Computed example of a mutant assay.
Amino acid sequence: MKNIFPDEDRRHALQEAILQGQAYKLAQEDIAFLASEDLRPVRMQLELLKAEHALREHGVRATVVVFGSARIMSLENAQAALALVQEQLQAQPDDESLQRALVLAQRRVSQSHWYDEARLFAEMASHAFQSEGLGDMVVMTGGGPGIMEAANRGAFEAGERSIGLNITLPHEQYPNPFITPELALRFHYFALRKMHFLLRAKALVAFPGGFGTLDELFEVLTLVQTHKMPRIPIVLVNGAFWRRLIDFEFLIEEGMIAAEDVELFVMVESAQEAVAALRQFYAGFPPENAQAVK
């Protein structure tokens, strides 16, 4: 009978092929398996649990969530961008795309005021709700640039921690450098990220923003309106922006919302007014005693 038992070198090579094979990997180490369609429910659970574990480990019980545009810049960056467009336009004065870029760059300079207000709000709120012990509300943002950076920066400059819930996008959104490193979390699923925005939220402050800000804001309003989560202070900063963007009176006139639904939020014009609105809402009891999302 022919001896088909492999020699030692061949035996080792065969074993090595098995050890390196995809099938032999432990399930938790098999990235291709974890990324498969069948494992989507598991990935969603992992995203929920990883963030929950980190926030619980670091004792985060309550948050003040700050939403707003990623495109609003600091004054320094906005002025630098404007100067660049002006320089390009001098070389190509008839370029229509540069003419449009100039208008937008000028608008970015004027919008930088809201970067400063978000930064100041987060600094004031961090002092009020962490340093002063009025309820341990930690500033939480989407972790990216613009208003998100401003809020994380304000908390950083106050010497307090802050949270950033970043998300993977086709054009990678890098975390801003002011997030507390242990509380810089990244998500794949918008739904799980939005859930973590609200699980500990005891206040929401929305600065001017686009689709993402509107999506997040209206989800909170809907959850409060339908009693899926308890009432929290919802503060819209820059009343002129929000009134032009959303005709709340029209929604009432058309019967799409009840008149009392506009009482779910307040509009303010400054960081000081936003902090005052939170203080007034929680006068007499700390925000961490409020209920969480159901």
Score class of each variant (00 low, 15 high):
residue 3 N to Y: 13
residue 6 P to T: 01
residue 6 P to D: 08
residue 8 E to H: 13
residue 15 Q to V: 15
residue 16 E to Y: 13
residue 19 L to Q: 11
residue 23 A to L: 09
residue 26 L to Y: 13
residue 28 Q to N: 13
residue 28 Q to S: 12
residue 28 Q to T: 12
residue 32 A to T: 10
residue 34 L to C: 13
residue 34 L to A: 09
residue 37 E to G: 09
residue 38 D to L: 14
residue 39 L to Y: 10
residue 39 L to P: 15
residue 40 R to W: 15
residue 41 P to L: 08
residue 42 V to P: 14
residue 43 R to M: 04
residue 44 M to S: 08
residue 45 Q to R: 14
residue 48 L to Q: 08
residue 51 A to V: 00
residue 54 A to T: 11
residue 55 L to E: 01
residue 58 H to G: 11
residue 58 H to V: 07
residue 61 R to S: 15
residue 65 V to W: 05
residue 65 V to S: 11
residue 68 G to T: 10
residue 72 I to G: 08
residue 75 L to Q: 15
residue 78 A to Y: 13
residue 79 Q to K: 13
residue 79 Q to S: 09
residue 80 A to S: 09
residue 82 L to K: 09
residue 86 Q to F: 04
residue 87 E to K: 12
residue 88 Q to C: 01
residue 91 A to M: 09
residue 91 A to K: 10
residue 93 P to G: 02
residue 94 D to L: 09
residue 96 E to L: 14
residue 97 S to C: 14
residue 97 S to R: 11
residue 97 S to E: 15
residue 98 L to I: 03
residue 101 A to S: 10
residue 105 A to Q: 03
residue 106 Q to L: 04
residue 110 S to Y: 08
residue 112 S to C: 02
residue 112 S to E: 03
residue 116 D to I: 15
residue 119 R to W: 15
residue 120 L to Y: 05
residue 121 F to N: 00
residue 124 M to C: 08
residue 125 A to R: 00
residue 126 S to C: 01
residue 127 H to K: 07
residue 130 Q to V: 09
residue 130 Q to C: 06
residue 133 G to K: 06
residue 133 G to D: 01
residue 134 L to N: 13
residue 134 L to D: 13
residue 135 G to E: 07
residue 135 G to V: 08
residue 137 M to F: 08
residue 137 M to L: 04
residue 140 M to L: 14
residue 140 M to T: 02
residue 143 G to C: 03
residue 145 P to S: 10
residue 148 M to S: 05
residue 155 A to E: 03
residue 156 F to L: 13
residue 157 E to F: 07
residue 159 G to W: 12
residue 159 G to L: 04
residue 164 G to C: 09
residue 167 I to R: 01
residue 169 L to V: 01
residue 175 P to Q: 10
residue 176 N to C: 12
residue 181 P to K: 02
residue 184 A to L: 10
residue 187 F to N: 00
residue 189 Y to E: 03
residue 190 F to D: 01
residue 192 L to Y: 05
residue 193 R to V: 00
residue 193 R to K: 00
residue 193 R to M: 00
residue 195 M to P: 04
residue 199 L to K: 01
residue 200 R to E: 04
residue 202 K to F: 11
residue 204 L to M: 04
residue 207 F to L: 04
residue 207 F to Q: 02
residue 210 G to M: 05
residue 211 F to I: 09
residue 213 T to R: 05
residue 214 L to Q: 11
residue 215 D to H: 04
residue 215 D to W: 04
residue 216 E to K: 00
residue 216 E to R: 04
residue 224 V to T: 06
residue 228 K to W: 08
residue 228 K to S: 07
residue 232 I to N: 06
residue 234 I to P: 04
residue 235 V to L: 07
residue 236 L to Y: 12
residue 237 V to D: 02
residue 238 N to P: 01
residue 240 A to C: 06
residue 243 R to L: 08
residue 245 L to V: 11
residue 246 I to F: 12
residue 246 I to S: 05
residue 248 F to S: 01
residue 251 L to C: 08
residue 254 E to D: 14
residue 255 G to A: 14
residue 255 G to F: 12
residue 256 M to E: 15
residue 258 A to Q: 11
residue 259 A to H: 14
residue 262 V to N: 06
residue 264 L to W: 14
residue 264 L to T: 07
residue 265 F to E: 03
residue 266 V to F: 02
residue 267 M to Y: 03
residue 268 V to A: 02
residue 268 V to S: 02
residue 269 E to R: 03
residue 272 Q to C: 04
residue 274 A to W: 06
residue 277 A to M: 05
residue 277 A to F: 11
residue 279 R to D: 14
residue 281 F to K: 03
residue 283 A to N: 09
residue 284 G to F: 06
residue 285 F to P: 04
residue 287 P to K: 06
residue 288 E to L: 03
residue 290 A to V: 13
